[in-house]
Write a protein that binds this DNA or RNA. Sequence first.
DNA 1: CGCCGGCGCTTCGGAATCCGAAGCGCTCAT
DNA 2: ATGAGCGCTTCGGATTCCGAAGCGCCGGCG
Lengths: 128, 128
Amino acid sequence: MNATPMPGRPVRGSTTGRSLMAALDLFGRRWTLRIVWELRNGPLGFRLLQRRCDGMSSSVLRQRLTELQEARLVEVLPDDGYSLTPLGRDARESLDPLIEWSQRWAAELADAPPAAAEDAGDGRRNRS
Amino acid sequence: MNATPMPGRPVRGSTTGRSLMAALDLFGRRWTLRIVWELRNGPLGFRLLQRRCDGMSSSVLRQRLTELQEARLVEVLPDDGYSLTPLGRDARESLDPLIEWSQRWAAELADAPPAAAEDAGDGRRNRS
DNA sequence: CGCCGGCGCTTCGGAATCCGAAGCGCTCAT
DNA sequence: ATGAGCGCTTCGGATTCCGAAGCGCCGGCG
């Protein structure tokens, strides 16, 4: 397992350790953004969280949760499961503009020509 | 190659949830956030952009650029190379709060205790 | 002209990561 | 005591990423 990106220490692909790069690395891992988003309304148990994330694989979910705990975005509440810490909630809120942007994005693509995207599927990953 | 995440088939109307998922998928791919960030100050050529991204692999860079073009965040200026579209710039700006958060994050971790599970001298990553 | 050196981009084999079904030990309600 | 749900782990195979190498195409430059 790779090291959890942290500000002030080496980041994958970089030695600068700048906190922004660490953040971009952390959130640039598959499912990380999604997990933080799905925890926005309060704690969720492991299996429920997994279901909310389109049934992502349990092994990767475990890995992400560990990373997010080390990064102090997520904590475990003994009786409620995984929850965002105040820092995590703060991060989640900083995603709001991105949410709003995604709607502008959808609107923009709605009236623009479909472009020659060879496959341009449904936006979900294809397997096999 | 995988399909580029796109907001749900626009039937006009509430693609609300879907467009966000598409955005989280798009930005949850390795290097995507970073690339958008590195283009913030204007167009960059392929190789220069690659250098800015800590020498990420050219094949993946090409793949990401194609995805970002399909998603209309990036366009090619015949004489200047890759550039953010207005939509792309909009997306980039929506990342600002995240940048600010990352600094709070760094500050928080600076005086917080080193955390039990962590430090992991475990340096078995990094090929070379 | 001939020869760099840089460019955008592609190929390809091997490494890292992700996936998902299966299963373990546990608790709780039936 | 049986079943169902839980958090979590394992592991083989699929996918993705990496990075060195190289292609064709310029624009200098001697």
